[in-house]
Structure formats: structure tokens, C-alpha cells
Design a protein around this nucleic acid. Sequence first.
DNA 1: CACCATATGGGGGATTCACCCCATACCCTG
DNA 2: CAGGGTATGGGGTGAATCCCCCATATGGTG
Lengths: 221, 221
Amino acid sequence: MSSSQPSNVPTAIIADDHQIVRQGLKVALESPGLVTPQGISVVAEAENGLEALAEVKIHQPDILLLDISMPLAGGAEVVNDIQRWSPDTRIVILTGIHAPGLIAQLLNTGIVGLFSKGSDLNELYQNLPLILNGGRYIASSFDEALQAQQNTPALTGREQQILNMIVAGKTNKEIAQQLVISPKTVDKHRTSLMDKLGVHSVAELLAYAFREGLIDPDHLL
Amino acid sequence: MSSSQPSNVPTAIIADDHQIVRQGLKVALESPGLVTPQGISVVAEAENGLEALAEVKIHQPDILLLDISMPLAGGAEVVNDIQRWSPDTRIVILTGIHAPGLIAQLLNTGIVGLFSKGSDLNELYQNLPLILNGGRYIASSFDEALQAQQNTPALTGREQQILNMIVAGKTNKEIAQQLVISPKTVDKHRTSLMDKLGVHSVAELLAYAFREGLIDPDHLL
DNA sequence: CACCATATGGGGGATTCACCCCATACCCTG
DNA sequence: CAGGGTATGGGGTGAATCCCCCATATGGTG
């Protein structure tokens, strides 16, 4: 594939649901000298997660600049999907969200770059060459989120599962039926869950979950 | 003030927490011919609500391009504050959020333009002259949100108040103490509230409130 | 002046939640 | 194999919830 030949201009795909962001990034990447001497060739754009996956499959670019808060598939799952279909594409995340839970999920995927939309984008441009050469760069603006994540106790799979169902408005009984376990077991998980998170009511639990980015307000009910 | 003289180039302030958006908008507004023959002069930028307010106070621009999801003061309140300090500035909202509750709040302020970050920004550029001439334009991508809003029953002041306190994790008893009313009255309001909203538990209530943009996940607990 | 919406207050009851106690079973790791 | 973590169950208790019933007072509106 031509994209892996270092003598050629590197290829990139931009995925962001806001047209103005795509346009600005495209201009920056393609302008010679800003990122690399010859610039980076933007071979496609995508405005949602599904488009991004499709375009990456087709073009197999060197780099994917990806916003993870997009309609039609977003978050860490898209990253995994994309890596399965184009394992050589280096995925760089550009996001405005700093929720500790989401950041942690992303870092557990194979992303090689993480930048904040809120900071100066020169940080992105300056470190893209490093990433093109096989490096990895996490912007310092995520340090706070990473530290918060370390202070957060890890939930077990079952607890995570039950948290999602509580947030979806289900009662212990409903959860029990759906998981084919006893309501008492659900209650037990719920208790240790709230104990770990240090909350004492459904309302606090929900607020916590939203703030940490553990769940997405959109795909509810 | 020079900004009100029609012979001059119109002045604008851009407020968005993402540098790349500000940059893209600035280029577009200032390039002659795209919006107006001579372009629009961007006299200042702001990356949060407080900065936006401060800059508008100083420059009293013809137009403020405002993203309402920004740190340090966001949403409809900022709009009201800004209008108080610079009543002649025409406020145009550019947002990626379509939550019906938030949209309705915004339209109840004196904004003269509402555009979506997700759609083609030519819609914005083409209608800015209209807005400069005293017109008002709401992008069609908000039609769905507006219709959803009309199908939503209106909450009374007391119900809205109690909803916010429930979301903040307070119990009926705590709410009663704070409002100096009986817990039974709180319970009554809570009941009619959930009845109006068609939900049957705190979890569903919270999910509803988040989706509708009635509350902000950040200033919780 | 009736009428209606809103806010206030209460009784009662079924359900659910929050949080203790307890035990068994599995898997993995030292 | 002994220990730790996870998942699975159950008993029990007090608090809070959801949702009925009811009444009164107030303000606006036809």
C-alpha cells in the first residue's frame, strides 16, 4: 500500500461532526511546513462514526484525526472497530471532553495521540511528526483527568453492567429479571457499587455517572 | 459609538472555547465577499462566558457569535447578562447542542440567530447580512427540537424548582426544610411533576432532565 | 361571582431503596 | 492449598419513594 512508503506525503482522514473544525484542520494539515515540510494529504473527511469507519476502510490512511463525541457511533468502541479494519492507521484523538472515565477508556485502546480542542492546536501540529514517526503523545491538559481516574476505584464488570441499567431507570427487580439473577444479588451489587463510588442515593449515583462520562445521556430510555 | 455607523465595516466578537473554531470563523467573517462585500471585522475573541461578557462590554460590537456550551458561565444566563451590558449587540448562537429545553430557553432571550455547528456553515454566512440588517434567522436543523419542546408540558415554577433540587440529590425532607414547606407538599409537587413528564422513578427523572438540557451535569454535588 | 390553576397541607399504603447481617461457589494467584 | 476477589443467594430493618385519597387558600380570568 502506498501509504506506508515513507517517501510519499503522509495521508490523513479527518473525522469531526463540525464542518468548521474539519475545514480548519484540513487547511492546517495540508499547508506545507506547518506539520511536515510537504504537508499532510487529507484524503477524506467524515462527520460521524460510521462514515469515519467506512472511509478508513477504503483509504487505509497513515493517520486518523478523530473526534470521539460524534453522532452514529462514538467513544472508545469506534476506535476499536477502526483498528480492526485498518491496524496500521495511527489514531489521534481530538476532543473537548475531559471526563476521566472516557479518557481512561480511550487510553486502553491503541490510540497514539490525545489532544484537547480547548488548548492551542499548535501542540497538535508540533507533535504530529513525532506520531508519524511511531511516537505517542498525550496532551498535558489531560493530566488532571488521569489523576482523577487513578483516585477512582475500579468497578467490576457486573457492577458496571448494573450501573448502566440503574441509569436507564430500571428497578432492582427488572434488572434481576433481565440478568436472570435474584433481586437480592442486584441489591448487593448496587450496594457495593455505591460504596465504591462514595454515593448514597440514586440521584448522586446518576450525577456521578454523567460527570465521569461512564454513560451517555443520549442513548437513554 | 462607531459600531452603529452603517458606513463602517461591521464589528463582531467570536466566543467559542475551541481555538480552531474561532480561527475558522474569524477567517470566514473577515474575508471580503463571503458575508458582506467588505467583510466583518473581528475585534475580539473569547474562550469562555466571562471573557465574552467582558469583551462585549468593552467593544460593544454589532454582532456576537456565541457558543453556549462554554466553561465559566454558559447557557441562556450569559445571553441575558450580555444583553444587559450591550443592548445593541445582536447575539447569534452557534451550538452543537439540540436539547429542546436549552433551545427553548435561548429563544426566550433576545437572540437574533441560531445556527448548528453540525450543518453547513454557509447557512450562517448567507444569513448574517440579513441579521445585520435587523433580521432574525433560526436554522431549520432546530425544527425537530422546537417541535419536541411544544409536545413537552410546561412545568410550574415550583415544580421546576423542586426538579432542580431532586436532581441535586436532595430528599423530600431536605427540600421541605430548604423551602420551608411541608415534606408532604414536596411529595405532591414531585408526583405531579413526574406525572407531567411521564416518568416513574428518580432515575428516569434524572435521565429526562439531562437529555432535555434542563440541568448541567457539571455543577452537581 | 363562579371557575380554574397553583400552592399549600395531610392520611394511608404498597413498593422500593439503602444498608446491615450471613453463606456458598468459583477462579486465580501466591 | 490457603487466601483474595468476584458473583451468587438470603434475612431483616428503617428510610424514602410512589401514588392514591382528601382539604384549604390564593390569584387570575371569563
